[in-house]
Design a binder for these strands. Structure first.
Lengths: 219, 219
DNA sequence: CCGCCAGTCATACCTTGGTTTGCTTGGAAG
DNA sequence: CTTCCAAGCAAACCAAGGTATGACTGGCGG
């Protein structure tokens, strides 16, 4: 915090790397442009595509953001696309928009986790509110995920035995019990235990429990 | 656990006390009866009301269940009712049904946490699926809540000082650090700590951390 | 073949956690 | 005024956690 190295010229960039990026898919070029302009008017970067295939083909950078999808699209439709995204490991919040909507369609989309579902023509403010909500959702998901990955990378440095010992420790077992369970001596357990605490970068069992908790809550 | 008192005659009731109860609100008597009959055909008890006011007036027993609400109702409408329920501490999952629906209405309901939103006339199976999902959601919410309340009742027996010590223990602080923070001797900390472990019915710090975690996750 | 590393164990030593016994104090309820 | 209880302290003791140091084994890659 106090002083940084001479490399990495980023004193106060406020640059694009972590600013949100909104991906728009609509087959109507006019609508694409309108949405991009709308977002730009509030300082949000948008990138538009004419079809879901186009979006998948493009190398989308890893940035916080969300999707705005037309429901009726050439090729893969918006709702089917929503289903596929989970399989691809993409978990961006989705805002649907459509001119031809019925209630079952919107309910299905919302049940599948969509953030909002707007009918064209929509008011600018409604879209901006929806995008705000979607971006907020993505931010919290990303910070959650970042925390999980940090812990995972720490846990990856553990040897198999250390992992076993850690599992027993967070269950609250005593060293002698762990030794009995694993068929080894108590001293060895203490040794593994010590390495676990160092590698996981915690100093108390309480901290270790909390770190490991986030691991199996979703991972 | 071994033997119970001579009171409380409930050897193996399998009775209605914990079977799900579905509450239906619709101003159309025919619809009310139809839904109740439909539910009964799959062994689910339903209780119908002509308005939200009627439902609030009735003494609804504390049982697992869900709500089926018509959107258009005399007096307080379904969607407004949904909003009010949170304020009243009622958190039953809601299945909406309506004959006059538009997309914004359904989206608003789903964003507010509704389980499903059906348009009349609906297929029997759709309603049964929606109720199943709603009941599943309520079951998990109730079991979650039961766990929280168990821990809360244990924590309620703690004295103020014990609570302070517990808070520090789950932070992973050493006894001597806790003593310093609270301005008391280490021996006294150990004493409080011991009482905390007994009162919270745990034997390890790991278990204590997990019990306390569920407390501030929602409560 | 040698080095590396996970895994194991023993001895010794120190720190921390946890309990018991006994005693004191101050406030609230009876 | 007495009883009750949260809160506190001390001494003594035992159990558990934690850290060296040193040494042995077995597998795997260079």
């Amino acid at each position: 915090m106090a002083q940084k190295g001479t490399l990495s010229p980023d004193p106060a960039p406020a640059s694009a790397k972590d600013d949100p990026l909104v991906l728009i898919v609509d087959d109507d070029a006019g609508m694409r442009e309108a949405v991009v302009d709308l977002l730009q008017s509030v300082g949000i970067e948008g990138r538009a595509f004419g079809s879901t295939a186009e979006l998948l083909a493009a190398a989308v950078p890893d940035r916080p953001g969300c999707l705005i999808l037309d429901v009726r699209l050439p090729g893969l439709g918006g709702l089917e696309f929503q289903t596929r995204l989970d399989g691809l490991g993409i978990a961006l919040p989705i805002v649907f928009m459509t001119g031809f909507a019925d209630v079952p369609m919107s309910v299905r989309a919302m049940k599948a986790g969509a953030t909002d579902f707007l009918i064209k023509p929509f008011r600018d403010q409604d879209m901006l509110d929806a995008v705000d909500a979607a971006l907020a959702r993505d931010r919290s998901r990303r910070s959650q995920r970042a925390a999980t990955m940090t812990v995972e990378s720490l846990a990856a440095t553990l040897t198999p035995r250390e992992r076993e010992v850690m599992a027993e420790v967070v269950k609250g077992r005593l060293n002698k019990q762990i030794a009995g369970d694993l068929g080894i001596s108590e001293v060895t357990v203490k040794l593994h235990r010590g390495k676990v605490m160092r590698k996981m970068q915690v100093r108390s069992v309480a901290d270790l429990v909390r770190k490991v908790e986030v691991l199996d809550h979703e991972g």
